[in-house]
Design a protein around this nucleic acid. Structure first.
Lengths: 107, 107
DNA sequence: TTATAATATCGTAATATTGCAATATAGCAA
DNA sequence: TTGCTATATTGCAATATTACGATATTATAA
């Protein structure tokens, strides 16, 4: 154990869960927020912005990239990261769906 | 280490992260989906629905309740759970905000 | 009261995550 | 080349999460 059980759940459920999980860390939310407000995409700026060491930030960027939430393109020595809204839209749609199907006379 | 660093991040960032984290598990997404589609709120139904043992499901329900994503009210021997949309709306708003501020000429 | 049904809690093993120092890698500038 | 800057990777220690059997707890039913 310690391992998350994914067999027995639908593909959709597993994908949603792993996207939510990728966003379930303050550093990763802060990265997303920074990418949202910054005009230019970033890289080392995050090291100056967040209270974490460079390797830790690199690790969080990797996780966001693996989840498809951000993209990075090489630009000389540095790497330009930006948001990929396709994935966040999947979450958006899921959350929106909760509003409409709900039974108002529950609990 | 092993502990998530929350000092140095804003309250907002930490709250968003912990809400996303609470949803970052297939069992918990499946519970939310079930609560969405079911007319009546549930409890033991989940044990018959999900590929997990009763104590495990109870634990996931507790996490969702702690996060404020679901509510439970005692009803005799059983407990009636339902969604609390106030919290999911916080996530919804965050995801929606990503769409509008974004710089289209990035990466 | 006794039994039963629905949940919760405890204890624990297996595994995952987090954070960082040290180090590697890769591009560019001098 | 040498050095510098930006980023990634490795290796590890500390801690968190997941899953579940066993066991409590609590409310009703018989």
């Amino acid at each position: 154990m310690g391992t998350t059980k994914s067999e027995g759940f639908s593909e959709e459920v597993n994908e949603l869960a792993s996207l939510f999980k990728a966003m379930g860390h303050p550093a990763r939310i802060a990265i997303i927020q920074f990418l949202r407000t910054q005009e230019k995409c970033i890289c080392t700026d995050l090291v100056n912005e967040l209270p974490l060491a460079q390797p830790t930030i690199s690790q969080h960027l990797k996780e966001l990239k693996n989840a498809g939430i951000i993209q990075g393109s090489v630009s000389g020595t540095s790497i330009c990261y930006c948001l990929n809204l396709e994935k966040t839209n999947v979450l958006d749609a899921f959350l929106a769906s909760l509003k409409y199907d709900q039974n108002p006379t529950c609990c």
